[in-house]
Amino acid sequence: MELLAEIGPWGAVATVAGIYAIFAMGLQVQVGHGGVDNFGQVAFFLIGAYASTILVEQHGMGLVAGTLAGMAIAMVAAVIVALPTLRLRGDFLAITTLAFGEILRNVAVNERGLTKGSAGIDAFTFRIDIVRELRRSLRDQDILVDRLAPLLILTWVLVLVVALVTWLLLRTPWGRVLRAVREDDAAVRALGKNAFAYRAQAMALGAAWAALAGTLYAWNQVHFSPSGFEPIVTFAGFVIIIAAGLGTIWGTVLMAILIQGVLIEGSRYWLDTGLPNAQEASLRYMVVGLALMLIVRFRPQGLFGSRAEMAAADE
């Protein structure tokens, strides 16, 4: 029997799209619900990737424990970043969080003892312990699976779990207060609720999702280096949540598939421009930049959001 014996390039694309869906949902919680314009979301992605990898590969921690530890470290880092910066005005917050991401990337390049620097680091335990063992035992029962299939399935199960948890959380009284905070900070404080704590919690929750995405990224790459954590990762996340519409969770998942999957990762398989690869890559990101500009200008509410969401983002 053959079960996902050959998932082909689109299977790989779908895995990346799922990773970005989780990453962008984290950003959606922060920007769309907490009103925190975090331009350094990639920092938590980086923390998740490096922390889990270092803990698992160098300190023998289990894969699940390592993943959860990465998420926990990212949440602590998010609160530490939030404490001083959430009091800043919007554009300073954007610059500061962006700088935070770049500082971490510099550290990852320079602290070779910890991260192996620009040479990069290996995260092969998942591939070896889980994937190989799984395929071996399935092969004994005459079932063939592609070596990329387990992560593809795991990623999309996690996408659904994260989306469901986030969606349900935002419908609780907690989520309701968070929305109120984004609309009118002072009015919430006047009711005896710590508006600042709500923003910080949104930041931490979003950071946890980014860290989870980071760990999946590490497992998918097997070998990765600091160059995978440039600010463009955050911006891709912004393109996804703005195109979906601020506040929408399921729209974010859909847009991650369309933008990161079909457009950015997948276009090399369906679009033949006849250009050299490097130029085609540049063209892809030109389109991403242009798309962001056009959405912001002509449809700031995104495909699934309401215009009021974008307006409220400024208060």
Binding site: G289, L290, V296
Partner: peptide
């Protein structure tokens, strides 16, 4: 608003760079 302007600048930056 502010977020729109920031994202517009980011979009322009990406476009120009690439």
């Amino acid at each position: 608003g502010l977020l729109q302007k920031l994202l517009m600048a980011i979009g322009l930056a990406l476009f120009l760079r690439y």
